[in-house]
C-alpha cells in the first residue's frame, strides 16, 4: 500500500468532469484507490464519492493505493492532477 499527499491544481477544483476523469483513470487499474480528506476516506473509483469532497483549488488530499499495480496507478493519477485533469479551458 502506498500513500501520498497531493494538491488540486486546476482553478475550478474537482467538479464533475475532473472527478469523472479521475474515476475513469483509477478504474482502469486493478488496485484499490481511496482518497483521504477532511478525515473521510472515500472510494476513488466512485464518482459520487469523489464529488462529495468538492475539493477546491489548493485543497490537499491524501491518496491511498493498494494492489499489484499501485505504483503505476499512483504515477498516472499524479500526472492527471499535474495536467489539471486535461481541462483545456482553465
Amino acid at each position: 500500500m502506498i500513500r501520498k499527499k497531493v494538491t488540486i491544481k486546476n482553478s475550478s477544483g474537482l467538479h464533475a468532469r475532473p472527478s469523472a476523469a479521475l474515476v475513469k483513470l483509477s478504474s482502469s487499474f486493478k488496485s484499490d484507490f481511496f482518497i483521504h480528506m477532511y478525515g473521510y476516506r472515500v472510494n476513488g473509483k466512485s464518482i459520487l464519492g469523489v464529488m462529495t469532497l468538492a475539493a477546491e483549488q489548493g485543497a490537499e488530499m491524501e491518496l491511498e493505493i493498494d494492489g499489484s499495480d499501485e505504483q503505476a496507478c499512483l504515477e498516472a493519477i499524479e500526472k492527471l492532477i499535474d495536467q489539471k485533469f486535461g481541462m483545456k479551458d482553465e
Binding site: 464533475a16 459520487l48 464529488m51 462529495t52 468538492a54
Partner: peptide, 16 residues
C-alpha cells in the same frame, strides 16, 4: 447520505 450526494445515484453508462 451526505449533504452533497443526497439521493443522487450513478448508473454506469448513464451517469448521475
Amino acid at each position: 447520505a451526505t449533504i452533497m450526494s443526497k439521493h443522487f445515484m450513478e448508473i454506469h453508462g448513464l451517469g448521475i
